[in-house]
Amino acid sequence: MADRQLRRLDRQFRALSRLAPGLAAAIGALRGRSGFLLRFPLAVLLVIGGLLSFLPILGLWMVPLGLLLLAIDLPVLRPAVSAAIIRLRRRWTRWRRRRRSS
């Protein structure tokens, strides 16, 4: 079960890399095995910073990014995060289609 969830999350990361080619190198570096020492504290700081979104510069955009990074290391988060990525990609595609047709 965990392997299937990890493969699904990996597919979503590859899809995000295709959508934002400029971020592909950063995504690849953070997803590597050696990236844990950077990834985990960064993810925790992003989530905490997102919860403090009432302060200037910090914002709610930090929470999903932190959860995305945490899902690499915490199998409990993988199904929810990959499902959220799928939903967001579908909404993005629908929005782009509507924008092109109008």
Rank of each mutant, 00 (worst) to 15 (best):
L46I: 05
L68P: 02
V63K: 00
R39M: 10
R14C: 07
R90V: 07
L37N: 08
G35F: 03
A15T: 13
G35E: 04
I86S: 09
F54G: 05
W61D: 13
L51Y: 10
D3M: 12
R4S: 14
F36T: 03
I72T: 04
L42G: 02
Q12G: 05
L88G: 11
D10S: 12
L70R: 00
V44D: 00
A83L: 12
R4H: 11
R91Y: 07
F40A: 12
F13T: 11
R89T: 03
L52T: 06
R14A: 12
F54A: 13
F13V: 09
R100H: 14
R8S: 12
L65R: 01
L52F: 02
R96K: 07
S34L: 07
G49M: 02
S82N: 00
L46C: 05
P64H: 04
G50N: 01
A26E: 03
G50D: 04
R100Y: 04
I48S: 05
D3C: 10
A80G: 13
L6R: 12
R96A: 11
R97C: 07
R33M: 14
R90N: 14
A71G: 02
A29C: 10
R18L: 07
R90G: 08
P75G: 03
S53G: 06
A24Q: 07
P75E: 05
R7A: 15
V76W: 13
I48T: 04
W92E: 06
V44E: 01
P79A: 06
R11L: 15
L6N: 04
A15H: 03
R99K: 15
R7Y: 12
I27E: 00
F36N: 02
G28A: 11
R8L: 08
S101C: 09
A83G: 14
R99Y: 14
R18N: 08
